[in-house]
Computed example of a mutant assay.
Amino acid sequence: MNIVRITFFTLLILVSTSCRPKEKSTQPEMAHQEPIENPETPKLTPSELQQYETAYFASGCFWCVEAIFESVKGVKEVYSGYSGGTEKNPTYEQVSYGKTHHAESVEVYYDPKVVSFTQLVQVFFGSHDPTTLNQQGPDRGAQYRSIAFYKNDEQKKIITDYMAKLEAEHVYGRPIVTEVKKFDKFYRAEDYHQDYEKLHPNNSYIQNVSIPRLNRFKKNFKSFLKEDVH
Rank of each mutant, 00 (worst) to 15 (best):
Thr45Glu: 13
Gly74Glu: 04
Pro138Glu: 08
Gln51Pro: 08
Tyr79Asp: 05
Gln51Trp: 12
Tyr56Phe: 14
Lys73Phe: 14
Ile36Trp: 10
Tyr52Asn: 02
Glu53Ile: 11
Cys61Asn: 01
Thr41Arg: 15
Phe57Val: 04
Val65Ile: 09
Val115Lys: 02
Ser116Trp: 11
Tyr79Val: 02
Phe125Arg: 00
Lys113Pro: 11
Pro28Val: 10
Ser25Pro: 12
Phe57Met: 02
Pro112Val: 06
Glu87Lys: 03
Thr45Cys: 11
Gln27Thr: 13
Val78Ala: 04
His32Asp: 15
Asn38Tyr: 13
Thr118Arg: 15
Gln119Asn: 13
Leu133Gly: 05
Tyr82Met: 04
Phe62Glu: 01
Gln51Asn: 12
Asp111Phe: 09
Ser59Asp: 05
Val106Gln: 02
Phe125Thr: 00
Gln136Leu: 01
Val123Asn: 04
Thr91Phe: 11
Cys61Pro: 03
Phe62Lys: 00
Gln50Met: 12
Val123Thr: 02
Leu49Pro: 10
Pro39Trp: 12
Gly81Lys: 00
Pro112Asp: 09
Leu49His: 09
Glu104Ile: 00
Ser47Val: 12
His128Trp: 03
Gln50Val: 11
Ser83Gly: 06
Pro46Ala: 07
Pro39His: 10
Ala58Trp: 06
Phe124Ala: 02
Gly85Tyr: 15
Tyr79Pro: 02
Glu40Tyr: 15
Gln27Pro: 07
Ser127Cys: 04
Gly81Ser: 04
Met30Ile: 14
Gln33Ser: 15
Thr41Trp: 15
Ala58Asp: 08
Leu49Met: 11
Ala58Arg: 00
Val114Arg: 08
Lys43Asp: 15
Asp111Tyr: 07
Val123Met: 01
Val108Gly: 06
Ala31Arg: 10
Glu53Leu: 15
Val123Arg: 01
Tyr52Ala: 03
Thr26Asp: 14
Val78Asn: 02
Glu70Asp: 14
Glu107Ala: 09
Pro28Gln: 11
Pro35Thr: 06
Ser96Val: 06
Lys73Glu: 12
Lys88Leu: 13
Pro42Ile: 08
Glu70Phe: 15
Val114Phe: 13
Gly84Lys: 03
Gly74His: 01
Ala31Ile: 10
Phe124Gln: 02
Asn38Glu: 12
Gly81His: 04
Glu104Ala: 00
Glu107Arg: 09
Tyr56Glu: 05
Met30Thr: 14
Thr132Gly: 01
Cys64Asn: 00
Glu53His: 14
Val114Leu: 13
Pro28Ser: 11
Ala55Phe: 12
Thr131Trp: 10
Glu34His: 11
Pro42Ser: 08
His32Asn: 14
Asn38Leu: 08
Val108Ala: 10
Gln27Gly: 13
Asn134Glu: 13
Glu70Gly: 04
Thr132Ile: 03
Gln136Arg: 00
Thr26Ile: 14
Thr91Asn: 07
Gly98Pro: 08
Ala55Asn: 05
Asp129Gly: 00
Tyr56Gly: 03
Tyr56Pro: 02
Gln122Pro: 07
Glu48Ser: 06
Tyr56Trp: 07
Val75Met: 10
Tyr109Phe: 13
Val78Leu: 04
Glu77Ile: 03
Glu93Val: 12
Lys88Ile: 14
Glu77Gln: 14
Gly81Asn: 04
Glu87Ala: 05
Leu120Asp: 08
Glu87Thr: 03
Gly98Cys: 08
Phe124His: 03
Gln50Asn: 12
Val106Trp: 04
Val123Pro: 04
Glu66Met: 02
Ser25Asn: 12
Val65Asp: 03
Pro35Gly: 05
Asp111Pro: 03
Gln122Tyr: 12
Val78Phe: 07
Ser59Glu: 07
Pro112Gly: 09
Phe57Tyr: 14
Phe69Met: 03
Thr131Met: 06
Glu107His: 08
